[in-house]
Amino acid sequence: MGQLSGPTDPTADAGWPADRPRKGFFTDTSICIGCKACEVACKQWNDNPRDGDLELTGMSYDNTVSLGASTWRHVAFVEQGAEQIAQARRSGRALVDLGMPTVRSAAPSPAPAPAGGTPPDVAPVDTTPPDTPEFRWLMASDVCKHCTHAGCLDVCPTGALFRTEFGTVVIQPDVCNGCGTCVAGCPFGVVERRSDGTAAPTTREGQRKGEQPPVPKRGVAQKCTLCYDRLLDDEIPACAKTCPTTSIKFGDREDLVAVARERVAELHAQGMTEARLYGANDRDGVGGTGSVFLLLDEPEVYGLPPDPRVCTTDLPEMFRRATMAGVGMLAGAAIAFLAGCR
């Protein structure tokens, strides 16, 4: 049943005309410079208040820690030594051996001529990095996955969450009653309710350290909308627009997945076998995600679940079993009744 698990077109499933391409992100972490422009552009556009305590976390350069009610883009920083890099390369190769992703034998396309015209034959310069670097610093911008089978959406009892015509999942703050069911329904821990400040009732309101900035839409569940309002005006999401190195790309999901696969192949050809995709597999536990990532290590390293599974996947099975149990019980009762009549 395509509506609850496996590959499907979620936009059509939600009752939108079937010909609309599904929009998404491709976040290529191999070119991320960890500048956090995405976090800032997101907060600016969506008027999200600062939500940290203004204290250094000690987690490398990450001081916003995770996605949350007011942080809809979050950049993770991971420092790794040679052993972990070697391990990542091994696990990446293993994925290839399993047939995913497909590595093409073609080397990356040669450099185009900078000044126009055909470049003459130039002896190619070896661009292979040294075998295994002693150290690396991974940076990755995380965001709502806009799942094909979105747990948050499917469990929402009020209709506050809806699937948009772009295939994305958006919360309507004017409908949400803050029940929090979606928070538990998200396998990635993305959705969060805006704190109403009662945890720290004595905190003064203000912007400085030790003060609580004004929080709009209190008590309401919040998460990335993939800039639904901007998409309606043919604008691209704020984070993708600002990203200095195009680590965050926005577009039709189908195209992005193709680009992502090419990029993995290119990196593998350069010996960076640690590259792999996350969210591009339509047969995973959420039917693939609208936000696809190129990672350079296991998802857990970035704080992502290795095998996300939407809670509604098993609904048909559960219904089937419950029905069988019900039928069985009815049958048993009937037999008992008939037997008792005798």
Partner: peptide, 11 residues
């Protein structure tokens, strides 16, 4: 505030 929370303290 949005920049301050990204690097809040001298280190």
């Amino acid at each position: 505030p949005v920049l301050a929370e990204l690097q809040p303290e001298m280190f």
